[in-house]
Amino acid sequence: MFDKLEAMEQRYTLLGEWLCSPDVLNNPAKLREYSKEQSDLADTVETYRAYKRARQQLRDAKEMLAEKLDDEMRELVKLEIEEQEQELASLEKRLQVLLLPKDPNDDKNVFLEIRAAAGGDEAALFAADLLRMYTRYAERNGWKTEMIDANYTDIHGFRQVTLSIQGKGAYSKLKFESGTHRVQRVPVTESGGRIHTSTATVAVLPEVEDIQVEIHEKDIRIDTFCSTGPGGQSVNTTQSAVRITHLPTGIVVSCQDEKSQIKNREKAMRVLRARLYEKYQSEQQEELAANRKSQVGTGDRSERIRTYNFPQSRVTDHRIGLTIHRLDAVLDGELDEIIQALIVADQAEMLAAAEA
Rank of each mutant, 00 (worst) to 15 (best):
D317C: 02
V315K: 00
Q347E: 15
D346W: 07
R301H: 04
D336N: 14
T316V: 11
T307W: 06
D328V: 06
N309Y: 12
L335D: 11
L327Q: 09
L342G: 02
L331N: 06
D328K: 12
I338E: 03
G333W: 10
Q312G: 01
I338S: 01
V344N: 10
T316K: 04
D332N: 13
S313L: 01
Q347K: 12
E334T: 11
D328T: 09
P311A: 09
H318V: 04
S302I: 06
L322C: 02
S313C: 04
L322D: 02
L322I: 07
T307A: 04
A345C: 14
R304T: 11
Y308T: 06
A329V: 02
A329C: 08
A345L: 15
L322G: 01
S302A: 14
R319Q: 08
G333V: 11
T316S: 12
R319T: 02
R326H: 12
G321S: 09
A345P: 09
T323K: 04
D336M: 12
Q340T: 13
I343S: 08
S302G: 01
I320D: 06
D328Y: 05
T307M: 07
L331K: 12
D300W: 00
E334G: 10
I343Y: 07
L331M: 14
I305E: 00
I305G: 00
D300C: 00
E334M: 14
Q347L: 08
H325I: 00
I324W: 03
A345M: 15
D328P: 07
I320Q: 07
E334C: 09
Q347M: 11
R326F: 03
T323R: 05
R304C: 06
V344K: 15
D332P: 10
R306K: 10
L327P: 07
D346S: 15
I324V: 14
H325Q: 10
E337G: 03
A341C: 10
E303I: 05
D300V: 05
R301Q: 11
Y308N: 05
A345K: 12
D300A: 06
H325S: 09
T316L: 05
D317H: 04
V344R: 14
L331S: 05
L342E: 01
T323W: 01
R314L: 13
G321N: 14
R306C: 02
Y308S: 06
Q347Y: 09
I305A: 02
E334K: 15
L327D: 06
A345H: 15
F310T: 13
Q347T: 04
V315M: 03
Q347A: 08
Q347P: 03
H318Q: 06
A345D: 07
L342D: 00
G321D: 11
I338D: 01
I343M: 15
V344T: 15
L331G: 07
D317A: 02
I324C: 10
G333T: 11
T323P: 02
R304L: 14
R314S: 06
T316Y: 00
E303L: 10
R306H: 06
V344L: 15
A329R: 10
R306A: 01
R314C: 01
H318T: 03
F310G: 01
I305L: 09
I324S: 08
N309K: 07
I305T: 09
T316C: 00
Q312N: 12
Y308K: 07
Q347N: 14
I339P: 01
T323V: 05
